[in-house]
């Protein structure tokens, strides 16, 4: 019953999103902004897997996001790969970054994991910032959006559907992962890692795989983001960017499958709408955040779901006494 309700809600949301090219003009939002919501949601999901589900402070996921963007940009500009190739190379760059960092992050917990994540992210930031000849340094790098298979151009509408397909695919994969025995074990690690180890499970192995999944998700989001704006710049790798992903996750609901979309929707659309009205948009966006966190302590979706679940559960516990 619950699964069916979720399926119906999911189909409705995806249907509304699919009508994006017709709906976005109604709220005076460019379609590319809705595409940005979708690709950003992938990066938020990557943070959610580590922080929301596993309890690891993923404060450096912009590193993978930026690696994805630069991987796509550099391969498009210098290797002249096509659109699909750029997406694959961007995502693979992030996965490679994850493979390099994971052994160092693996045994850290709590604040040490967070600080080390930030530090590694900044290393990538400075590399992009300093290698001006290759990356364009502080100014970033422009590149034309590559064609698919060298023939078919991708316009904004097509790109939107590519982003939507990627989002839906990743959401289904994400849901499968967090609902699986593997995902339940990640949640158990968040709650009580010592106990998980005393059930005979090597928690480091679980965290290693979670890190790689997270890096890949963020990398795909970053690669698509780079291809969306045809631009890669160092701030994509910066810890501020990581912070925004964390904020969006908290806003949407840590440890919820759809929370990443809710968080990135409010942040990206909110930023777009408010920043066209006033140059003090950060102030208003900050106010919106504070209001949301006060009204929805477990994130918007997290709080709503908890309220929905509270009623049947309370009725249920009666007969057990």
């Amino acid at each position: 019953m619950k699964a069916r309700a979720e399926l119906i809600a999911g189909i409705v949301v995806v249907a509304i999103l699919a009508a994006g090219p017709y709906l976005s003009p109604l709220i005076h939002v460019d379609l590319s902004i809705v595409s940005e919501v979708l690709v950003t949601a992938l990066a938020v999901m990557s943070v959610n897997l580590l922080l929301g589900y596993t309890g690891l402070p993923a404060f450096g996921n912009a590193a993978y996001f930026g690696l994805g963007a630069y991987g796509a940009a550099l391969s498009a500009k210098y290797l002249h790969v096509d659109f699909i190739g750029a997406v694959i190379i961007g995502t693979a760059s992030a996965l490679l970054g994850g493979l390099i960092l994971a052994p160092f992050l693996l045994r850290r917990r709590g604040i040490y994991f967070g600080l080390l994540s930030i530090a590694f992210g900044q290393v990538f930031y400075f590399v992009a910032y300093r290698f001006t000849d290759v990356t364009g340094g502080e100014d970033g790098m422009n590149f034309p959006r590559p064609l698919v298979l060298g023939h078919y151009a991708i316009n904004e509408t097509t790109f939107f559907y590519v982003a939507l397909a990627a989002f839906v695919g990743c959401l289904i994969a994400f849901r499968t992962v967090v609902r699986s025995p593997f995902g339940r074990t990640l949640v158990a690690i968040r709650q009580n890692e010592a106990r998980v180890r005393y059930l005979g499970l090597n928690t480091d192995r679980f965290i290693f795989v979670a890190l790689l999944i997270s890096a890949t998700l963020a990398g795909l989001g970053g690669a698509l983001f780079g291809l969306l704006i045809n631009f890669a710049y160092p701030l994509e790798l910066d810890w501020h960017q990581s912070g925004f992903f964390v904020l969006m996750m908290i806003l949407g609901g840590a440890g919820t499958v759809w929370g990443s979309l809710v968080g990135s929707f409010i942040y990206v659309i909110g930023k777009d709408i408010i920043s066209t009205q006033t140059s003090y948009w950060q102030l208003y966006l900050g106010g919106l955040f504070v209001a949301c966190v006060l009204a929805f302590p477990r994130g918007i979706l997290g709080t709503l779901l908890a309220r929905l679940n509270a009623r049947p559960a309370a009725a249920d516990s009666e007969p057990h006494g």
């Binding site: 499968t176 992962v177 609902r179 699986s180 025995p181 593997f182 339940r184 074990t185 158990a188 998980v196 059930l199 005979g200 499970l201 192995r205 679980f206």
Partner: peptide, 19 residues
């Protein structure tokens, strides 16, 4: 669910993606 975590761990199921 608590006990199931251990039972799954023992059965070698904990790492799987398919329930």
């Amino acid at each position: 669910e608590n006990v199931m975590l251990g039972v799954r761990a023992r059965a070698g199921v904990a790492f799987r993606l398919r329930p």
